[in-house]
C-alpha cells in the first residue's frame, strides 16, 4: 500500500469524524440552550472552546451569538474545522484514493458534501441547524456503515479506522475537558452541586447518554468520567479507541501486541495500558485539565509516530525533498 494512500485514507476518516463530532456538539448544545436560554453565553463559549478554535472565531466574528456560531461551525470555509471544511477535506482526500475505497463510499461522501455545500450561501438565520445536524449525522453513518460492510480488512481499512478513532478520542477528551471546567468551576468533585441536565447534555454530545444509562443508570460525575475515559465497551471512550488502534497496529506491523517492535506500536500499547489500569481517582489526583492535557499531547505524539513510520514518503529513500508533494494536513 502506498504511503500517500495510507496518509489520505487516514485523514479522510479523521476529517469525517471531526465533522461528525462538531455536529454532535452543536446538536447537544442547541437542545440544552432551549432548556436554559438564560445560560446561553456560557454555552456558546464552551462550544467554541470544545472545537479548539476560539482564536479563529474571535478573529472572524464579533459576538458569541447563535447565528454567528452556527455559521462559523457549520459552513464557514474560513474556519478550517467547520463541518463544511471538514467534509470538503474528507472528500478531497477521498478523491485521491477513489480507487481504494468502494464506489458506494465515494458516492456517499460526495453526496453529503454537495448537500451541505448548498447551505454555504444561505444566511445563518435561515439555516435550520437541526436539519443540518441530522443530515450530517445520517450521511456520515451511511459512510461508516459502508466502510464496515464493503471494504476489505486490509491496510487501508486499518488506517481509516485509526484515523477515525484517534480523532474521536481527541474530541471526547476535549469535550470532557471543556464541559468539566464549565460544570465544576471550583474543580472539586465532592460536595459541589452539579446539574443533572448538564451532565446529560455532555453525554449526549458524544452520543453516550443512552449507553451510559444502560451501564450505570444514575448520573454521577465520577461515573461519567469513568465512562468517557476508561470504559471498555463504549465505542467513544478514549480507552476503547486506543484499544482498537492497538489491534490495527498488530495487523499493520505484523507484530503481536505483546511484542511491539516499532516506536509507534510501543507508544500505542503504553497509552492503552495506562488507560486500562488508571481509574477516576488518578484523574482527580492530577486534576482533570492536567490529565486531559497530558492525554492529548500523548495522542498528538502518536499521530506523529504514525506519520514517521508509515506516511512519510522519504523514509525509505535517499532522495531530497525537491519532489516532495508534502501535504501535511491540518491538525485540529
Amino acid at each position: 500500500m502506498l504511503s500517500r494512500v495510507a496518509y489520505s485514507v487516514y485523514w479522510m476518516f479523521r476529517y469525517l469524524e471531526r465533522a461528525q463530532n462538531t455536529v454532535r456538539f452543536i446538536d447537544s448544545d442547541l437542545s440544552y440552550y432551549l432548556d436554559n436560554p438564560s445560560l446561553t453565553g456560557n454555552v456558546w463559549h464552551s462550544l467554541i472552546a470544545a472545537t479548539g478554535d476560539k482564536e479563529r472565531f474571535e478573529e472572524l466574528y464579533t459576538d458569541y451569538t447563535r447565528d454567528q456560531i452556527i455559521r462559523f461551525l457549520m459552513v464557514d470555509l474560513d474556519n478550517q474545522n467547520s463541518v463544511l471544511s471538514c467534509l470538503s477535506a474528507a472528500r478531497e482526500n477521498a478523491r485521491t484514493i477513489r480507487e481504494i475505497i468502494s464506489s458506494g463510499m465515494w458516492e456517499a461522501i460526495n453526496s453529503l458534501y454537495l448537500e451541505i455545500k448548498t447551505f454555504q450561501n444561505i444566511t445563518a438565520q435561515a439555516i435550520d441547524p437541526g436539519y443540518l445536524c441530522s443530515t450530517v449525522l445520517s450521511g456520515s453513518y451511511l459512510i461508516t456503515g459502508l466502510f464496515y460492510s464493503t471494504m476489505n480488512r486490509s491496510g487501508a481499512w486499518h488506517f481509516a479506522r485509526m484515523g477515525m478513532l484517534l480523532e474521536r478520542a481527541d474530541k471526547t477528551s476535549r469535550i470532557l475537558d471543556v464541559k468539566y471546567f464549565v460544570l465544576l468551576p471550583e474543580s472539586s468533585l465532592v460536595g459541589s452541586s452539579y446539574d443533572n441536565i448538564q451532565w446529560a447534555a455532555l453525554l449526549k454530545s458524544v452520543s453516550g447518554l443512552e449507553m451510559y444509562r444502560k451501564a450505570y443508570s444514575k448520573i454521577t460525575p465520577a461515573e461519567v468520567i469513568e465512562f468517557l475515559i476508561f470504559n471498555r465497551d463504549f465505542p467513544r471512550s478514549i480507552r476503547f479507541c486506543l484499544s482498537s488502534c492497538v489491534e490495527s497496529l498488530v495487523y499493520l506491523t505484523n507484530n503481536p501486541a505483546d511484542n511491539p517492535r516499532t516506536p509507534a506500536q510501543r507508544n500505542f500499547n503504553r497509552l492503552r495500558n495506562e488507560l486500562e489500569t488508571n481509574e477516576v481517582h488518578d484523574v482527580l489526583a492530577v486534576g482533570m485539565h492536567e490529565y486531559i492535557d497530558s492525554l492529548q499531547s500523548k495522542m498528538n505524539h502518536l499521530d506523529t509516530l504514525l506519520y514517521q513510520e508509515f506516511f512519510d514518503p522519504h523514509k525509505h529513500t535517499t532522495e531530497k525533498g525537491a519532489f516532495d508533494g508534502s501535504n501535511s494536513q491540518a491538525q485540529s
Binding site: 500500500m1 504511503s3 495510507a6 529513500t317 519532489f323 516532495d324 508533494g325
Partner: peptide, 17 residues
C-alpha cells in the same frame, strides 16, 4: 503520482508503508 515513485539503481520503486 510522480511523488510516489523513486528510481534507484535504474529500477522504479513505489513508496509503500
Amino acid at each position: 503520482q510522480g511523488q510516489d515513485l523513486v528510481v534507484e539503481d535504474d529500477k522504479v520503486y513505489v513508496k509503500t508503508i
